[in-house]
Structures are given as C-alpha cells and as structure tokens.
Amino acid sequence: MACPPVSQLSAFDLLGLGECGWGDTLLLGFGNSILIALGAYALGFGIGVAGAFGKLYGGPVTKDMAAVYTTLVRAVPELVLILILYYAVPGLLNQALVAMGRETIVLPQFLTGVVVLAFVQGAYQTEVLRGAILAVPHGQIEAARAMGMSPLLVARRVIFPLMTANAVPGLGNLWLNATKDTALLAVIGFAELTKATFQASSTTKAFFVFYPAAMGLYLLISLVSILGFGQIEKWARRGQRDVRG
C-alpha cells in the first residue's frame, strides 16, 4: 500500500502505527529509553552503594579514590563523558582481548549506553546515599555494633531501613535525570526516543506533531515516577513521627 504524501496526512495518521505513521518508531524509541534508564539506574545504584560505603567506612585510599571518582564525573559534562567512554570502553576491552590472544568483539550499542550512563549515575548516587547514611542517627549504628552484629548485618538490618526514607527524594530526582540523560545517547546515534523524534520530524517536517508527542511521553514518565517515589517515601517513612507540627 502506498502512502499519501506527508502533507495530506493528519497528526493522527502521522502518529499512528503501521506503514504511513511513525508511531511504532516513536514507541520503540520510548521503550529503548526506558530500558536504558532502568539498566543504568540499577547499575548506578550498585556503584552508588559501593561508593557511599567506601567513602564512609573505607580505608584512606578507598575514600580518596571514591572522592576522585565523584568529583571528576560531576565536574565534566555528561556528553563529554559519554563520548570518552563510548570510544574508550570498547577500545580498552578489545585491547585486553587482543592481549589475551582472543578475537575482538563489537559491543552492543545498548550495553555501551547502559554502562556509560551508569558510570555517571553512580557518582551522583554515591553522594545521595552517603548523605542518607550520614543522616542515620549514630546511636542506632553504635547500638547495633554493641549487640555484636557483623558489619553486613548492621548494613542490612539497621542502616538500609533507616536511610531509605532519607535517600528516596534524592534517588527520585536521579531517576528523573536518568530518563532525561538517555536523550544524550541520541548524539552518538542510539535509536532512543529523542533520536526517533528527530528522524520522524525531519523526514515529515511535522515538528509540532512529533516533538510535543515525545515531550508528552517524557512528562508521562516524570509524573508517574513522581507519584511512585512519593508512595515509596510514604512507605519508607511509615512509623516515623511527622515533624511538621
């Protein structure tokens, strides 16, 4: 079936699924964006937990290494970091593979995107989690240690439950950043929502159909996430007294 010229298509046709519309391209990009954001956020959370505990309870070298990591990452624009890592990570990996006498591989773009954004997220999450741990009353941790709990048990039973409420607002903001940072991958050609919007709108010249639609999708994630994190915070603060008199 041949499509009519773009000028004869309505906004609904353009956003529709199927041959003439770009709806499926946009939705595919949207799905990619969410998957990358989820992956980067989860991996970044792992880095953040390790970084926060390293900064607070690590030895002098661990502390300084973590400080160098968070300072450097937060001082350099995400776009520059993404580009450096985008070239460096596969390059170094392949050099290592060659050195071990194996064949080079091509990293899937998706994986590179996730790793690169997680590296950035990890630095910010380290700071949020460090602040949240510091806000846990010291007596609680001392009491747990005095009971003879192992460091892991203290972390699992005392620090994590008490710090969650403090960490949720900051972590919520970082999740919103993660969803928006996926747009930066458009610059290195990854087919996420912003890139899909760019392609759809520059092909059809219907800028004011596709950009508002994509912005609506981003806003949808934001609003749903804000509601979700509000619920999580309410849950994390259960049993706590309301300080507002």
Binding site: K180, D181, S201, Y218
Partner: peptide, 22 residues
C-alpha cells in the same frame, strides 16, 4: 516548570531550532 524540568533539554533545543526555526 514541570514541562521544562520533565523533558530533556536536548529535545527543547531541537524543538526550538528545527521546529520554530522552520
């Protein structure tokens, strides 16, 4: 504020430059 903070800056820039500019 919600729209500006809820959408990527890259997209806002492209909307203004490519969209408004066209």
């Amino acid at each position: 504020c919600t729209v500006i903070r809820g959408t990527p800056l890259l997209m806002q820039i492209w909307l203004l430059y490519y969209g408004l500019g066209s």
